[in-house]
Design a protein around this nucleic acid. Structure first.
Lengths: 240, 240
DNA sequence: GTTCGTTAGAGTCATTCTGACATTAACTGG
DNA sequence: CCAGTTAATGTCAGAATGACTCTAACGAAC
């Protein structure tokens, strides 16, 4: 059996620490030109080396010894995809013994949201590509990454306060229709515009601005912005 | 210089990979003899070695090379406290550089619930003890364990489906009054017994049995039991 | 300009959910 | 049998919800 170089004699009977890596599920919403519900999609990188060469995998890499886990996630993400998401949250740590065929690998998975304007933008090279989450091409992925993606989608759908994360998928200012499309993409169903508006007014987590979105063909919608108020205390600070 | 295959040139200045450990926050409810709201409490172990010798810490230990992360959490928990919780869920992975003064330490924190009958029971030795979560003795803890405990409490309070976890704090069968006390301990406020009953009937996650709790001084309450239905897909299976 | 189609945004109403409280049922101990 | 206590059900006003209608503001067509 082959031991992993760099990890002196990884004999499974000796208690050597496993390799530690981060991987990130970065979700964005691809707008539907016909104004439909919009699709959740994410960027993936094609594996060059074994194991699982040729399969698509989540962007990520090893954790450096002088960076925190969140920093490692942000760094590897930028290196492989060029993206700098505004939202980064730890998702789950995967450490089953057989998740990599060659060595013991523990992966801290992160969950990121990318602004809707950055979705599907040019990618560094042909080994990076955006996929819809239900694209049959990624029904199978490298390692257990398909399981990681499915869990990220489950977590997103089960978030109690979508308000905290919805504005990370939009820009600083947004219209209520745009915000409703985000909710619809996450929940997978259509919402009544009037009732949606009323509910947001009651929660008061949103504030109307004096500006309006110009350039449309019809009545210009008012722009709103979020009032931040403390969500998950373990959310990663990406503002540094 | 050797590199891990598939991990091009990972030279972190020859630093060893981080030590990998698990720690578990085990919460239970201590009944109030006067029938009050009940307190959340947890077992801690006193550290013998440096660093932080003498301070109280979460039960845990290093991850073995032939066990999954969840297995490591269950094993170290049993070894140090003798407890075998029915619920074990991964909480968060802590990996800041300076969380241990002596070496780089990455800890996967788990979150467990223990049956109410096991709370405060005899402990293996004097280096294990139960504390209320707001006991001033544990305002300070070893490493960043106080932060981990606070995060576990935050997660518990923000759980959407308490039903999924409440019956882990009780036995197989329970009365509605007992269940209500669990909710009150988690939420930190009193609930109206009548309205509480009504809401549970609507969600239909609970089923009435034909049995009644005997031995009380007053009218015997009916016993109920949970109907399991899929919660967090990453919950650890502790049934094996 | 006027009209029309489209979207933004406010209002209506019946239904359901919620919190607070009253009422009845079942048991024990004196 | 009665008093005291807890279990369980019932009632009712106010709030939230879902489905729907109505008005306002714009560009485009005429």
């Amino acid at each position: 059996m082959s031991s992993v170089p760099g990890w002196a004699n990884v004999d499974e009977r000796r208690n050597l620490p496993p390799a530690l890596a981060v991987s990130t599920v970065i979700l964005g919403i691809r707008r539907d030109p016909e104004g439909g519900p919009g699709k959740l999609c994410l960027p993936l990188v094609r594996r060059i080396r074994q194991p699982h060469a040729g399969l698509w995998a989540l962007p990520g890499g090893p954790v450096g010894s002088r960076e925190s886990l969140g920093q490692a996630a942000g760094r590897t993400l930028a290196e492989t995809t060029g993206l700098h998401p505004k939202y980064l949250e730890q998702l789950y740590t995967f450490g089953d013994i057989s998740r990599s065929p060659t060595h013991r690998l523990v992966t801290i998975a992160y969950f990121a949201l990318v602004n809707i304007d950055e979705v599907g933008t040019r990618v560094p090279d042909e080994n990076v590509a955006w996929f819809g989450v239900d694209d049959p091409q990624i029904a199978e992925m490298a390692f257990d990454h398909r399981k990681i993606v499915d869990y990220a989608l489950w977590r997103l759908a089960n978030k109690t306060e979508y308000g905290q994360i919805a504005h990370r998928l939009l820009g600083e200012r947004f219209t209520l229709a745009q915000l409703r499309l985000v909710y619809e993409a996450i929940l997978g169903k259509e919402l009544d515009p009037a009732n949606f508006r009323r509910q947001l007014k009651n929660t008061a987590s949103i504030e109307a601005t004096d500006e309006y979105l110009a350039g449309g063909k019809h009545r210009p919608p008012r722009l709103y912005r979020y009032l931040g108020h403390g969500p998950d205390p373990m959310e990663v600070d990406t503002s540094k």
